[in-house]
């Protein structure tokens, strides 16, 4: 593979080219960061609303939430992206909206991963021990207050690892947005490729994505440590900086391996 040899021979000049092109690349990173952050926030909002709605008392609410979730999980991110970019503008009045590329990216990423997140939220609400629901009932607390004051704070600690992995998936998924003319990190790297060669450009791109993913991992690890500490499981963040760099590893976002680590009332 001469590509690999070329990679090392050309390392010096390539770094120089990279330096010259840096302003554009930084712009691309900024676009990727925006799509990931805004898409992630939208996805989080959708996850919570539709996750809670799926355990609502009224079956109409549950069914609507279920249809929403199945629809956006089932139709594939790329289709949703293309639909917003190509179909929506062609629809007659009062639709026919030509959205800005960033809005298209954020919407598609948020809707798609939000639908997955809703399943995570629903699952972790279901994983809060049954005794907690019984205590709410025995104290005659209203179901709504019980849900928001007692169940969700506990479920939050359970759902963070899965949400963290979904957010990384969202970041990875965001690399497709250049197909709808959003000039993200991947797009800018493609532009540099002619001058630096494939190996250099793409290893740089992968490394950049990898580092952004780690920013998400560290952020979410911190949130998880804090949430666990709040429900009395695990030390305060100030005493456990090491856990921030724990690899996201093996959280299974869907499927039966998603089980509650918390059991019963537990002894101290």
């Amino acid at each position: 593979m001469d590509g690999v040899i070329g990679f090392f021979e050309q390392l010096g000049p390539n770094l120089q080219i990279l330096g010259e092109r840096m302003p554009l690349i930084v712009e691309g990173i900024w676009v990727t960061a925006q799509a990931t952050a805004l898409g992630g926030l939208l996805a989080l909002a959708i996850s919570i609303v539709f996750g809670v709605a799926q355990v609502a008392k009224y079956s109409v609410v549950r069914i609507i939430a279920r249809i929403f979730v199945e629809f956006f999980r089932g139709t594939s991110l790329v289709v949703q992206l293309f639909w917003l970019a190509f179909v929506l503008p062609q629809l007659p009045y009062p639709f026919g909206w030509q959205l800005a590329p960033l809005a298209i990216g954020v919407l598609a990423l948020g809707l798609n991963y939000g639908a997955y997140g809703a399943e995570v939220v629903r699952g972790s609400i279901g994983s809060v021990p049954k005794g907690q629901y019984e205590a709410i009932s025995a104290l005659s607390l209203s179901p709504v207050r019980g849900m928001f004051r007692i169940i969700i704070p506990q479920a939050w600690a359970l759902m963070i690892p899965s949400l963290s992995n979904l957010w990384i998936q969202l970041l990875k998924g965001s690399a497709i947005v250049s197909t709808v003319l959003l000039y993200d990190l991947y797009f800018r790297i493609e532009q540099v490729r002619d001058q630096t060669g494939t190996w250099f450009a793409f290893l740089f791109a992968l490394l950049a994505y990898y580092l952004i993913a780690w920013v998400i991992v560290i952020l979410m690890n911190a949130l998880e440590v804090r949430a666990k500490h709040k429900i009395g499981r695990g030390p305060a963040l100030s005493k456990s900086w090491g856990t921030l760099f724990r690899s996201p590893g093996s959280v299974i976002t869907e499927g039966s391996l998603f089980r509650a680590p918390i059991s019963g009332g537990g002894k101290a």
């Binding site: 593979m1 590509g3 990384i168 970041l171 990875k172 998924g173 965001s174 690399a175 497709i176 991947y186 790297i189 493609e190 490729r193 494939t198 190996w199 793409f202 791109a205 992968l206 994505y209 990898y210 993913a213 780690w214 690899s247 996201p248």
Partner: peptide, 19 residues
């Protein structure tokens, strides 16, 4: 394994195809 898992499939596809 971790590197592959934490980087975009899209970029990997284009990279592998070019190489």
């Amino acid at each position: 394994v971790e590197f592959i898992r934490m980087t975009p499939l899209v970029v990997q596809l284009v990279f592998a195809n070019l190489v």
